[in-house]
Design a protein around this nucleic acid. Structure first.
Length: 106
RNA sequence: CGAGUUGACUAGACAAUCGCUGCUUUAUCGUUGUAUUUGUUGUUUCGGCAUUAGAUAUACGGGUAAAGGGGAGGAAAGUCCGGGCUCCAUUGAGCAGGGUGCCAGGUAACGCCUGGGAGGCGCAAGCCUACGACAAGUGCAGCAGAGAGAAGACCGCCGAUGGUUAUCUUUCGAGAUUUCACAGGUAAGGCUGAAAGGGUGCGGUAAGAGCGCACCGGACCACUGGUAACAGCUGGUUGCAGGGUAAACUCCACCCGGAGCAAGACCAAAUAGGGUUUCAUUACUUUAAAUAGUAUACGCGUGGCUCGCGUGGAAACCGGGUAGGUUGCUUGAGCCUUAGAGCGAUUUAAGGCCUAGACGAAUGAUUGUCACUUUUCUUUUGAAAAGCUACAGAACCCGGCUUAUGUGUCAGCUCACUAA
RNA sequence: GCGCCACUAGCUCAGCUGGAUAGAGCAACGCCCUUCUAAGGCGUGGGUCUCAGGUUCGACUCCUGAGUGGCGUG
């Protein structure tokens, strides 16, 4: 995603959240779904932890992207996430994908 | 066996599935440049040149697919030092400012490392140290204390000599003893303090004092050892010091030009913008006529000139250059092995190896087996459960320092205890 | 990447910049005043001066290292 895409998503977004994530989505004119990550240094201090969260999010997005409709997604993060285990993060993300699917099937 | 100390290594392993990234090879797609060739159009001094369309070959970059092999650290961190590299400046040197500070060596260089000296800590192995100069000058030291720097006289001690009081003796000149502490002497003792101008002993004296002597310790000179710092059961001279603080100013010696890969180099968009040329436009004159000529324009500030500000069509060319892209970008003071030199840091030679290059920033996820750790059961073994590890993520590259940190292994040395 | 600053009571700040007592305001607590509260007055407690070393007789102050937070600039 380019900075223009980010602006578009932030200005015109539907918001989902769980305990440690905030996810913004908009519908997309292209036939792809795109992922953007906005993980602030303020929320997660260590570079190792930031990278870990990015990797896990990308992985989860990749595994689930066939099931999701064509949307732009921006994933934001709340503080405290760096203390979670890998499988817990995956679990939360799975739930969010399910929510998004339910919303867009209707 | 226990306690300690120094140095080095290590940073989970394997397999399966899926994924990221850039590299090599192959295939394919579209596109661009170059070369050859065929044709079109324009121009021509008939050699060519420019333009445009196609074919073939080749090159580079790009997309897609497949295969192969590669992909974080000992600190990648902090950014505390030093260098390479790049650009700018530069005759040279100095001033200012900053840094370093026992000696020698190593190194590209260092505030780093090695070896040595001195001082301190520890029973020892060993560890720590900004460790030049206060006798060039200036400053600082509260309170206390007599005195805080060519020091001072509070309590003390003495009081020879001179004066004074009393007593005794008397040859009546004076003498002896005692008292006073006035002039004066003194720095042994006390007191204060972090610190008070060598220490101990004997002599000496009215009392004292390096005043004299002996020993210890200094200082200076020489000698010896050492490259040097420095050292000495060495010799001589000197009664013996104007102490502390320079992480106070300062002095001395040595070092430092400035900026940083967002450096720099190349390519290069736009309804951005600069310059040059030509044409157009506009004004005036002229002509049948934008035909020809002259001025370049137009608006505002002025009535005019000069001057200032603002606005101005089209094409071609030129250089600058923003966004953006490419490069710099990983072969390097590189790593490994062996041999030589050296106490060592390090260095020399030979052979071998290529080992991350991302940029919204890759190097991962899941599962299984084993290893490791902890807990429980059992208490040789073994079994089960949990954890799946600590610190932590390259961003131009190296050499150090500092800080964070899990587990285990190896080697050297010291001390204590026991046994032989 | 480069350059710079701060850290003192629960909070905001002084503190001799060239060294010897840790202070002010607000807040807290107690008492007075008031029928009660606020305001006002009097008093009290509260500090490892961010941390660790060093220099010094003596360090909030000087030096070195570390930690945390913040600012500027490209």
């Amino acid at each position: 995603m380019t900075p223009d895409h980010f602006k578009a998503v932030f200005s015109n977004a539907t918001r989902f959240s769980s305990k440690h994530f905030t996810i913004l989505i908009t519908k997309n004119t292209d036939n792809n779904n795109r992922l953007g990550l906005a993980i602030a240094k303020k929320r997660v201090k260590l570079a190792v932890q930031r990278n870990r969260i990015k990797r896990l999010t990308r992985e989860s997005f990749r595994l689930n992207q066939t099931t999701i409709p064509h949307i732009d997604i921006v994933v934001m993060v709340k503080s405290g996430i760096d203390k979670l285990e890998n499988h817990e993060i995956n679990h939360q993300l799975d739930k969010i994908w399910q929510k998004i699917n339910q919303r867009y099937k209707r």
